[in-house]
């Protein structure tokens, strides 16, 4: 469902992403890890059309994000790490706006919005202007908006920032249940316990290069060298 082939992203002379290749299958929950500044968000931004790759190809659902950007983006639900919203729109209006950008008909947006509003239990404040929202509220709105068009792929950058435990659980359960329905999740995070809990496979990026790309079980050889905790393995690998 997601293919990255020899992807490079340079900013001037600095190489943020250095020739990475990844493949994520349909219905897979994929964790994308790495220390700060490793190239995670840059990779995600290239996948969602916010950055253009310097070289290499990225395809989502069989569509090249550079050559067929609209086709590729129609398949994606993107949840950014900083969920900036329009201050003067309400959460419901923001969802209607995003739904419209994906060309969903008015009545369908209404129904879909209500469905996600009920699911994430945000009805109490969804009709207030987003300028009044906390970080967690904004995060929940951006997650809800990303699910409106029933995307085949969800690209999510730090999914649980600012969420209270109950909301975090709802989000985790929702994402996991989506993979059971065949939706592919590409998640970048620093929360290693979430990776252990949810991900089928992971990839670790450091200084723009992939240094690990497999299932969590395959980390056992590394676990032996440390105290066995995933956290210690991650620190050892990214040293």
């Amino acid at each position: 469902m997601i293919h990255l082939q020899n992807v490079v992203k340079k900013f001037g002379s600095f190489t943020a992403v250095n020739n990475i290749s990844l493949h994520v299958g349909k219905g897979e929950f994929f964790g994308f890890l790495g220390p700060n500044g490793a190239g995670k968000t840059t990779t995600i931004k290239m996948m969602t059309g916010l950055f253009s790759p310097t070289s290499g190809t990225i395809t989502i659902g069989g569509y090249d994000v550079v050559k067929q950007p609209n086709r590729a983006k129609s398949n994606i639900g993107y949840i950014p790490d900083h969920p900036f919203l329009y201050d003067k729109l309400t959460g419901r209006e923001f969802m209607a706006f995003v739904g419209g950008l994906f060309n969903i008909k008015g009545n369908s947006i209404k129904e879909q919005s209500q469905r996600v509003i009920d699911h994430f239990e945000i009805g109490e404040w969804v009709d207030r202007l987003t300028e009044e929202y906390s970080q967690g509220m904004r995060q929940r709105i951006s997650i809800a908006a990303a699910l409106l068009h029933d995307p085949e792929v969800i690209v999510i950058d730090e999914p649980l920032i600012g969420l209270d435990p109950a909301s975090a659980k709802t989000v985790k359960d929702t994402l996991k249940s989506l993979t059971h329905r065949g939706v592919t999740i590409f998640m970048s995070t620093h929360s290693l316990h979430i990776v252990e809990e949810l991900c089928d496979r992971i990839s670790i990026i450091k200084d723009g290069k992939i240094i690990y790309y497999d299932t969590l079980d395959k980390l056992d050889t590394f676990r032996e060298r440390t105290d066995g905790k995933f956290e210690s393995v991650f620190i050892e690998l990214t040293k």
Binding site: T90, E93, L101, N103, R128
Partner: peptide
């Protein structure tokens, strides 16, 4: 204050003569 979705020509749910992606941009 809670705000209901604005009505009339700036109702974000309403269809218009423009394609939806254009009309929501204008209304927004």
């Amino acid at each position: 204050t809670k705000r209901n979705l604005t009505s009339g020509i700036i109702d974000l749910y309403a269809d218009s003569i423009f394609p939806r992606s254009i009309s929501v941009l204008l209304k927004r």
